[in-house]
Design a protein around this nucleic acid. Structure first.
Lengths: 250, 250
DNA sequence: GTGATTGATTTTGTGCACAATATGCCGCAA
DNA sequence: TTGCGGCATATTGTGCACAAAATCAATCAC
């Protein structure tokens, strides 16, 4: 499942190489894969060459990535991978709790057997991906799970809004993952949630969802930074990526 | 208060005439004023001439208006003012109920006296504008009231997504306003809500907000269209605007 | 050595001309 | 009249060249 915004990019499908949506997707994937870390400068010409497209195409992708808050667009200074603040990260999870709480509340009352089966199957795939160590696929499936729930609930506006928040989440997770914690992505939570949904128990489903999101947030280190580090955050600088990567430059 | 997205357009402030954000604002205002009705084609060159900007500037404004769902961008076929479907309209109000419900729930617990005064003042201004018959100003103030509430609640992410929904609301109201109903914009609702907030009564505040939004939705005619009209909605056509207006062309 | 200034280079921003596509019109045939 | 090309026009899409701005480096003054 693709992000709604990514799909929305005016995309002239075939002909003449990759379109803005492809560039969007490749940059987004690179961010999820840690190949692009927060603060990394994204140069138009370099990316255009790499992807075999014109600068205009890269520019359009940047614009969409900026509305999703994946990159930050600084006038005359180019695009950098966004560095979500701690407060923003907390707010993001809080926002997801209210929206996804509402979504599962609605869904619990009207979910069908077929939908339960679909969700169960998704969890299974996710689980298998984890066991095989395919972290990227697993993350993707885990994220999709939330998008599918939103679609099933049947409110397209709410689904669209959630899509934005869900897309932003991996970035803050990567930015603030507590190294001490395991990144075991709470697959069990998803299973419990589906159980509650299957039982049409709205209250339990809402609780399960909120707990799931709290667990996720709890795996992060969102403590206020020590005064010593403060300067770095004030000026939007990150501690400096350790290893340069394929696209990553300068 | 400006829409967050409008502000986010990379804006080179002074020099060289209006920037994308200005074009965005003028088109948006025209939509709110009924000067541009859903389905109206927006031609790049014409608008560029009118606003004294280049086509590129108009294009950027279009892109932002499209992410806010104010206009629809059809590849190779230009931009038209969006025609929100009935389902989308219902979903929009439902989404606002959950998000704004959460916002006032939070705010009720932590609102300060100063903030209550600010809200009261806003309501007063809004009321005066209505009495003076300045409908445009009144609508703007009424919409701002909701944005201010979101800001006060302190979750910037939630405030951001609400901003999108709030910006879209006037369009669906204009599209589906029931002619039989008065458009008296429930100023009283706002006052009741502030009372509940001032009393730190979260439950009552949430209820007041949800009622307010239901009242608004209730003023619209969101019944499923008669089979005869169905064709018109399927093909995204509107009953045809009555009077051509300044910008409106073709 | 520190900090400021200037100039060269890199990078982003934009207008314009042309290409691609859609639209509307007219004629023609059934 | 209706339906179907095909041409003329209008409109959108895009690459390129140049303009504007920022970055970097070296020099110079203190």
């Amino acid at each position: 499942m693709k992000s709604a915004i990514a799909k929305s990019i005016s995309d002239h499908p075939s002909e003449s190489g990759p379109a803005p949506a492809d560039v969007y997707a490749r940059i987004y994937e690179a961010v999820l894969d840690h190949r692009l870390t927060p603060g990394t400068k994204l140069k138009e010409v370099r990316l255009a060459e790499l992807f075999g497209v014109t600068r205009g195409t890269v520019r359009k992708a940047f614009a969409q990535l900026a509305t999703m808050k994946i990159v930050e667009l600084r006038p005359n200074r180019g695009a950098i991978v966004a560095s979500p603040s701690i407060e923003e990260s907390r707010d993001l999870f809080a926002a997801r709790r209210t929206i996804e709480g509402s979504i599962v509340d609605t869904l619990a009352r009207r979910i069908t057997r077929a939908e339960v089966r679909q969700l169960t199957s998704l969890i299974k795939q996710e689980d298998q991906a984890y066991r095989r160590g395919e972290m990227r696929a697993a993350l993707k499936l885990s994220v999709d799970f939330h998008r599918v729930l939103a679609d099933m609930a049947g409110n397209s506006v709410l689904a669209g809004v959630l899509d934005q928040l869900v897309s932003r989440t991996p970035l803050v997770v990567l930015a603030y993952r507590d190294p001490a914690q395991s990144s075991a992505c709470a697959n069990r939570d998803h299973a419990e949630l589906v159980e509650a949904l299957a039982a049409h128990d709205a209250d339990r489903a809402v609780l399960a969802m909120k707990c799931h999101l709290c667990n996720l947030e709890g795996q992060l280190d969102l403590r206020d930074p020590a005064p010593g580090n403060e300067l770095a955050t004030i000026f939007g600088l990150v501690p400096m990526p350790k290893a340069p990567a394929s696209i990553h430059q300068n």
